[in-house]
Design a protein around this nucleic acid. Sequence first.
DNA 1: TTGACTCAACATCCTTTGCTACAA
DNA 2: TTGTAGGTTTCCATGTTGAGTCA
Length: 446
Amino acid sequence: MIRLAYDKGTILVYGNVRVPGSVWDTRAGAYRAPAYLYKDIRAYGESSGFTFRDDVLDLVPSPELKMRTVLRDYQERAVSAWDRAGRWGVVVLPTGAGKTHVAMKAISMANPAIVVVPTLDLLAQWKERLEDEFGIDVGVYSGDEHSLGPVTVATYDTAYIRAAELGNRFLLAVFDEVHHLPSTGYSTIAEMFACPARLGLTATYEREDGRHSELPRLVGGKVFEKSVESLKGEHLAPFELKRIYVRLTPEEEAQYQKDMEIYKNYLKENHIILRTPRDFERLVMRSGRDRHAREAILARHRARAVALNSSSKLEALADVLRKHSGDKVLIFTEHNELVYRISRQFLIPFITYKTGGEERSRNLAEFKAGNYRALVTSKVLDEGVDVPDASVGIILSGSGSKREFVQRLGRILRKKGDKKAVLYEIISGSTSEVKTSYRRHRGVDK
DNA sequence: TTGACTCAACATCCTTTGCTACAA
DNA sequence: TTGTAGGTTTCCATGTTGAGTCA
């Protein structure tokens, strides 16, 4: 007879049976394993013919949760795939394809459940939608409020801080925007949770740092994927990508070349070849000790800023805006400086992280109502904010992140009749930005 | 309760050539 | 011969958020 118990994010195995993944804990007088192995530990015990006393889960009381909304066929297939995979796994769906409905179906099958989200905005949206769907009081775990319900919504930050106390209260853990989960801190949430059922949701599985390789261990691998392309036209607006290349002004060109020269020379003189993100990380670490490395990196920053914020881009922007004078337009940039310049020059309202909550909602509402035709922003609207539809997106600058690109594309894809959406990219030709742009497209625009 | 602040955490930051030691 | 990893020990800058503190 072995007894399993939950202890602050771990499973204690009493009865002198060493289960895989556990180590002996002298003080507890038991083997101890991370809580995410709970399901495996049970399976191991059962296949070895042990009898159990299982005291791990201490579930929040939950009524039967019935789903009223009827799922679309692909949403139904996503849930089945997850179910077949042993109720572990990640569903990849583009923005606007109804990930919430997939999760709600899963919640109706396995509850009590916790939904972990990256922002307070998303927390509020999930709470509202879950209450509408199931007619229950939804619990909230955030900085301001701690209440448990049959379904509880928590921020990643609070789930991280309180993982030890939440870890055995739910059957199912849903991780919204699950690409956040593999980061060093947040991954401990999944490790300290015993939930035998797990569902991850995202529009972009891959991370630039490659840590998505951790997802199979933490929530299960990818069990279902639907690309933007396959939903284009039927469930999402058809779209077109247009690249516009501009030339730097002569002064910018001179500045760019000068700074890139400093950067490249440093690499050359020190026999440094950058192949992977890790190589670049090393260079950054080196710059903490090596004055010349620091100068090189600063020069590279200046060069990049020149390319991303070139004034030629504003002329191209003016052309695009003229061409789409009757459309709703969202403009994205990498840096806030450019946001402010555009806002001043074209008299377009802006939103950055410094924009207060009230002004932010007001700008979004006016944009939604059509009183503002355009909105300019840097990265705040990339994720986790309910942004009103637009039919034209203009990426004036951005990173090489595929995720950022897909999220920005998602902002113009909600279906509005047969209207075709257009996403422009304005790129400084003959600069490193050309490659950055290609990198973010990988696998998206074919 | 609100607002202003600080702090910690997260994400991106790369790919042109070049070196050297070691493994397949 | 060809291919590939290399190196740790917290990190140049910018953008963004949630939590916590204090008035």
